[in-house]
């Protein structure tokens, strides 16, 4: 196989391999289908354009997780800035009440209904996790869905293992409280 074709095959294989992981992590962090769509595209467009070389599969997986978390942070930062940026903040609040905002919410509801049709328990669990602060959602997702150890999470997120451990404990406690409040334990 020629070099460009090999590269093409490799890109395709990698996109297919990490598509679901990136999308799920993005959704867990930004809590909205449309924002997750945007983050997903940004991560893979960045990957395609940069074409980074990885030492091994672990390195590759860590790169995609880190890229997704960073994109989500940028998203969160810009959303925050527009909320606290003087006159602009009210434009955003106005926009959420606009026709486009209503359409967006309707789309999100349809997405949720389609995904969890017939099983309210999973939908409720996701909703409870969504109530956790962003730093906890990242750790919960990597620990429980991606089966990553505290040490692996600490390396990928560049946080101390002790911080990750504390945040995981706090997240579990907070989640348990929220589940109990919802009568769902």
């Amino acid at each position: 196989m020629k070099e460009p074709e090999e590269r093409q095959e490799r890109l395709k294989k990698t996109i297919l391999q990490y598509s679901e992981m990136v999308y799920r992590l993005a959704y867990a962090l930004v809590k909205d289908k449309y924002d997750a769509d945007d983050i997903y595209q940004e991560v893979f467009a960045g990957y395609i354009r940069k074409n980074p070389q990885f030492q091994n599969e672990e390195h590759e997986k860590a790169w995609f997780i880190r890229a997704t978390v960073n994109r989500c942070k940028n998203f969160w930062k810009s959303a925050w800035q527009s909320r606290t940026g003087g006159f602009d903040e009210n434009e955003e609040q106005g926009a959420s009440k606009s026709y486009a905002g209503r359409l967006r919410r309707r789309g999100e509801e349809a997405f949720a209904a389609q995904r969890y049709a017939g099983d309210g328990q999973e939908a409720e669990l996701i909703e409870k996790v969504k109530l956790l602060p962003e730093k906890y959602r990242t750790i919960i997702h990597l620990f429980y869905y991606e089966d990553m150890s505290v040490e692996e999470i600490s390396t990928v997120l560049k946080r101390k293992p002790s911080t990750v451990r504390t945040q995981l404990t706090r997240a579990r406690r907070l989640l348990k409280k929220k589940m109990e409040e919802g009568g769902n334990v």
């Binding site: 890109l11 395709k12 996109i15 999308y23 799920r24 769509d37 893979f44 999973e122 429980y144 869905y145």
Partner: peptide
């Protein structure tokens, strides 16, 4: 909790159109 969480998130996947779009972008870039 882990079992339920995994089950819940197993259902969260990107639309086929979105994946296709990325594959197309990769082909164009190439």
């Amino acid at each position: 909790f882990q079992k339920n969480y995994k089950k819940a998130y197993d259902a969260i996947i990107p639309d086929n159109a979105l994946v296709e779009k990325m594959l197309l972008l990769a082909a164009e870039e190439e």
